[in-house]
């Protein structure tokens, strides 16, 4: 199950597309966050979507981490207003998603696991926030609101929306390029 060159390239292409969206998402998020009530953090989930989408498409170990890291690098290279912090966030968010698919032995690619992957990425981002400092200095109710909104965002956008997108992509038949052939296909050679 090693990543082939085409797996890597496809993952990075998808990631870069999302990287551009990540960059555009910055001002959107800033607008959605008026006076810091953190309701806007629901849309934060967009920043985890590359990992789940790539993983659901390619179904190989390492893809979520690679995708989220590459998306963050892309976001950074086009001049993200969050600067280099996006790289570290990307890595840890990607790790979160990766971990969930790993827990299921890279065998289950359902909406449920995708949603868990999105939530895990949200947890990753919160860990970064804590390490970043000051987030613990928020009033408790405000902090809880932040955590809740973030997790819901991960669940909805990086989980369910990502799953919906990949399902729509599968209908176009493009996944036949990516997915490995089944044992039956190989057996048919000997018949």
């Amino acid at each position: 199950m090693k990543l082939k060159l085409s797996d890597i390239l496809i993952t990075i292409v998808i990631a870069l597309v999302f990287g551009i969206i990540y960059k555009l998402w910055g001002p959107v998020y800033s607008l959605f966050k008026p006076f810091g009530l953190h309701i806007g953090d629901v849309i934060y989930g967009m920043w985890f979507i590359a990992g789940t989408v790539a993983m659901l498409l390619l179904r190989k170990p390492g893809v979520a981490l690679l995708a989220e890291t590459a998306a963050a690098s892309g976001e950074f290279l086009v001049g993200s207003e969050y600067g280099l912090s996006v790289l570290l966030y990307g890595i840890i968010q990607g790790l979160g998603t990766e971990l969930m698919f790993a827990l299921f032995g890279y065998k289950r690619y359902t909406a449920f696991v995708a949603a868990l992957g999105g939530i895990a990425a949200a947890v990753g981002s919160l860990i970064m926030d804590a390490a970043y400092g000051y987030v613990m200095d928020l009033a408790l109710w405000n902090l809880l609101l932040l955590i809740g909104a973030r997790l819901i965002g991960g669940f909805l956008i990086a989980g369910l929306l990502a799953y919906f997108l990949v399902e729509a992509l599968e209908k176009t038949g493009v996944t036949s390029l990516i997915r490995p052939a089944s044992d039956e296909d190989y057996k048919a050679l000997d018949r």
């Binding site: 006076f35 000051y134 009033a139």
Partner: peptide
Amino acid sequence: SSASSMMFFG
């Protein structure tokens, strides 16, 4: 937007 949440709710 980065400053406001901490200013108002910190």
